[in-house]
Structure formats: C-alpha cells, structure tokens
C-alpha cells in the first residue's frame, strides 16, 4: 500500500431547521465514497437527514497564537442590548 486514503471532515444536519454540525472525520478516496462512508459511519442511529463532506486539507484554521488579538473584543459593550437603558414603562424592547 503506497499512498494514504485522504481524510474528510463530516458535517451532519440533525433535522431541517438546524445547521450542519461537525461530527467527525473519515477516510475515503473521493467525495462520492466519502458521502457513502459518512452515511454508514455517522448516521446509524438516525443522527440526521443531510451530510456534507469536506476534504480536511481544504480547511483553513485560525492560529491559536492569534486568539488574543482575534477574539477579545470584550470592551465593546455598546454592541450588547443591555448597554442601553430603556425605562420599564416603555415595555419589552
């Protein structure tokens, strides 16, 4: 056996109305086989009604070293509704 069969990431939509969610990965030679394998591996207990497969190599991930500069906008509280004061008499808004 020479080459490795490529790795795919599998996303399943549990039911209509929900988003596809990452559930795991598997190996398959091409996208058709990856979809079949995803069906056989990840939907044996009625886990969903739609499958996406994506070659793992096609995923770009953010760098955890940049997590600080990327994900800490905690000071911009004016983006949240509780920042604004509305009198109770106005009712729910």
């Amino acid at each position: 056996m020479s080459a490795e069969v490529p790795l795919w990431e599998v996303f399943i939509r549990p039911r209509n109305g929900l988003a596809h969610k990452h559930v795991g990965s598997l190996h398959a030679a091409d996208e058709v086989m990856a979809l079949n394998a995803a069906r056989d591996v990840y939907t044996r207990r009625g886990e969903g009604n739609s499958i996406w497969v994506v070659p793992s190599a096609s995923i770009s991930a953010s760098d955890p070293d940049q997590a600080g500069e990327n994900f800490e906008p905690g000071d911009k509280i004016y983006r949240h509704p509780t920042f604004y004061e509305i009198p109770d008499e106005v009712g729910h808004m």
């Binding site: 790795l7 990431e9 990452h22 559930v23 990965s25 793992s56 995923i59 760098d63």
Partner: peptide, 8 residues
Amino acid sequence: MYSQGLIG
C-alpha cells in the same frame, strides 16, 4: 474528530 487544519 476535529478539523485537521494546522496539524502538528
């Protein structure tokens, strides 16, 4: 079980 983006 996870995106393999930046392995290693």
